[in-house]
Design a protein around this nucleic acid. Structure first.
Lengths: 225, 225
DNA sequence: CGCTGAATTGACGGACATCAAGATGTGTGG
DNA sequence: CCACACATCTTGATGTCCGTCAATTCAGCG
């Protein structure tokens, strides 16, 4: 069964259409092996406990993966931007859910076909391995984040986003404050307050709430303990 | 270069010799492919940034892997018990350090020889893949822990240890309160206080500070949100 | 015994969560 | 084009969980 695309949970079109990040022509291990699909803002790409039949590569837009605690707290484990591959975290079933953050195009590839080809092509299999190890390292890095204080977490987040975005001194965040909070293990209020602190100390500027201008990256790096 | 074994950093013999957990005859992907080595309490198995030339399997004892923030905070990413394989988290270089928690025997296997054999043996290569994915899932699980409150973290830790230990209603912890604290992202005081709370509410009993008796696992599971 | 490191317990403060109220912005409908 | 609704974000007031600092107890070992 293919993952549900444009259909569920949300308006089809992004409310305040976020300027599309640059498209990413499929490159890397998954190139040209699958079908591109569109997902509306907040549409589910896959859900926890579903069988993990596909691998995914973001073409445009942004995707979050997350897990829920039974009392409703949400931990976002990663944001995926154009070019990023996700879905490799899974054994037989997904342990997390994935949703489009804004309207997104995602390349969807059958796991089995990739794994089958990897049996013969050493190169592909090595790429898959590297991919998984990278993912592992990313998650480990992230659990380091969760023991820092609020300022360090937010600074680190901004730097991470900056390094992953093509843009220079400014970045456009596709995700809401709530997403950021759930990624950093904070509340929206704390994220907001920390950002205004950074504005007041002239480290960043908020052109809009989603658009951030870097005024002093070295201070940010220093904060990123 | 082989990792330094009995030599460094610490007394050769465990101070209060912790009763050895059952030995684990090497099983699984690494069976019989390498050499067993002894590591003293607190001896380093490998260090951050060292080239990742080996894979490891605990035969007896216990191992912790951790990373340091530059201000000295330590995040323990995992505890490995007999049978567990570690060292797979690495690309070319280790991103974490590994130390024996108590005097331990560890099977040490050259990465390359494993990877080389995996080229031909589909079975082995699948096992390696599974291993890495498991590790990834373990780390993801762990970052969920770090958004919970102290009681939930400690309860979860005890249940995790219980499920990994052969023992039934009691477990012997090889690690110190400091280790537990650094694993859970808490302080030793908070860990200690939380444990005494659990004692007072008759959920567990402390036979010694390292030996924990479960009186009511269902309450623990409930706490484990 | 007394020494040493580990663990526990207590008093206090601070960072962040919670609760609540405004401000801002965006799509909708008259 | 304006006005309303609704979501998102910001700001403020207050509370609380956990960290910090410090003292005490405990266990193992010379």
């Amino acid at each position: 069964m293919l993952p549900a695309a444009i259909n569920a949970k949300s308006p089809i079109y992004s409310r305040h259409s976020v300027p599309m990040r640059g498209e990413s022509l499929p490159e890397g291990p998954l190139a040209l092996m699958g079908a591109p699909m569109r997902f509306a803002r907040n549409a589910e790409v896959y859900g926890e406990d579903e069988p993990a039949e596909y691998l995914y590569q973001v073409i445009s837009g942004a995707v979050r993966t997350y897990r829920l605690l039974d009392d409703g707290r949400r931990q976002i484990s990663a944001f995926y931007l154009p070019g990023d591959i996700f879905g490799v975290e899974a054994g037989e079933a997904h342990l997390s859910s994935a949703e489009a953050i804004v309207e997104s195009r995602v390349m969807v590839v059958k796991r089995n076909s990739v794994l089958a080809r990897a049996e013969h092509e050493k190169d592909l299999s090595r790429q898959l391995w590297t991919l998984t190890v990278r993912e592992l390292q990313r998650v480990q890095q992230h659990s380091l984040v969760l023991i820092k204080n609020a300022e360090e977490r937010v600074a680190g987040f901004l730097l991470e986003m900056a390094s992953r975005s093509s843009g220079g001194a400014a970045i456009e965040l596709p995700m809401s404050r709530q997403d950021i909070a759930d990624y950093l293990g904070l509340t929206i209020e704390t994220v907001s307050r920390t950002l205004t602190q950074l504005v007041q100390s002239n480290v960043i500027a908020l052109e809009t709430s989603r658009r951030i201008l870097f005024r002093n990256k070295s201070v940010l790096s220093r904060l990123n303990a």
